[in-house]
Design a binder for these strands. Structure first.
Lengths: 189, 189
DNA sequence: TTCTTTATTAAACGATGTTCAATACTGCCC
DNA sequence: GGGCAGTATTGAACATCGTTTAATAAAGAA
């Protein structure tokens, strides 16, 4: 039921994850709570679908950012900025992405994993331009490292958590991080 | 009521945040749910105290790691490793740190903010050794950037979330990130 | 002891996620 | 069209949750 997922997503955006209840979703789409359980195992599964939606949005924004940039350095800075901007504009949705609702030993569903992989592939494509000859393991390592930095900056930019950045611009912090990462790479080559 | 906070922390460690209920905490310390409300405004406030505990533990571990290291580069690598190890060993507690339970415009309580500041100060002290003449704003920016990377790697290392790292060692990713950050700095000087 | 103040309790309230038997609906065969 | 199989939806119920509050127990001072 796409309607239920979209309703959940819009409630999250507007009022936060805690405002999402089965009765609220059902009311929003003209159903009754029990109906949701014929389409989803439980409320957590709806959240997984919302996360898939979020990842797709995030990936599309990062993709546009990369497409509009020149060289690889510029593209990665733009990608990071888009990632951060998304987190800042949709803090509730981004927060849901950080939650851990999977059961022990439960794999990430493929329709979610695909979006994650594509997101990371965007970073890889640009880094590859800078280091065309790196072997797969090295490249994977560097992609993950850079992405961790981008992700960490974005996570820390979320308001209303214990980690708050009160003085500095998150954007400038992110730029420092990415530029340093790329500078170190350029030196090796 | 320290007992309540410690009980909540141990439930979180053992069974996750969702297992924490007022009735469970009360039973654990030989009280009744209502009693908690004479010491805390609500359950969220108990979580804030748990976060303060977590931050203290994390800071102490990072402090020990720095103390046992030689030069600043080594110290920062050890600090990052300690940060990551804590997240991996206490994923549920670390996850709670990422949550956003503060109300709009509500400031972080000082007893929490202090722990955050001290944690960041550990990073700053080591970075300062590398760049003794940097002005305050520049230093703050670099500290935040490096810390964002460490934090991001640790957050992504948590299991049971949509972002899972299936192939690579989180430790090696973190080392790449920190080494590149420091290499770029060394080049500037 | 008696009074005052504080700490604790038991019970209740509304709301939550989830289940399930009963009902409505739909499309198909005769 | 009429009846039927299968699916979709409902309403009501269950246990449990966070939180409140009037009543009770405990403790300390006079």
């Amino acid at each position: 039921m796409r309607l239920a997922v979209e309703a959940a997503a819009s409630i999250i955006d507007a009022e936060g994850v805690r405002a999402v209840t089965t009765r609220r979703i059902a009311a929003e789409i003209g159903y009754v709570p029990g109906t949701l359980y014929t389409h989803f195992r439980n409320l957590d599964e709806i959240f997984v679908y919302v996360n898939a939606l979020t990842l797709k949005d995030l990936r599309l924004r990062c993709g546009s950012a990369v497409a509009g940039a020149g060289d690889a350095n510029e593209a990665l800075l733009a990608l990071g900025a888009a990632y951060l901007a998304y987190a800042q504009e949709h803090p509730n949705r981004f927060e849901l992405l950080l939650r851990r609702h999977l059961n022990e030993n439960e794999a990430v569903p493929e329709f979610v994993q695909q979006n994650v992989d594509q997101l990371i592939a965007l970073v890889e494509a640009q880094l590859r331009r800078l280091e065309p000859d790196a072997d797969a393991a090295t490249m994977e390592n560097r992609v993950r490292a850079l992405w961790s930095g981008i992700h960490g900056t974005s996570a820390l930019a979320l308001p209303r958590q214990v980690f708050t950045n009160r003085w500095q611009s998150d954007q400038s912090i992110l730029e420092t991080l990415i530029e340093r990462f790329l500078t170190a790479g350029a030196r090796d080559v």
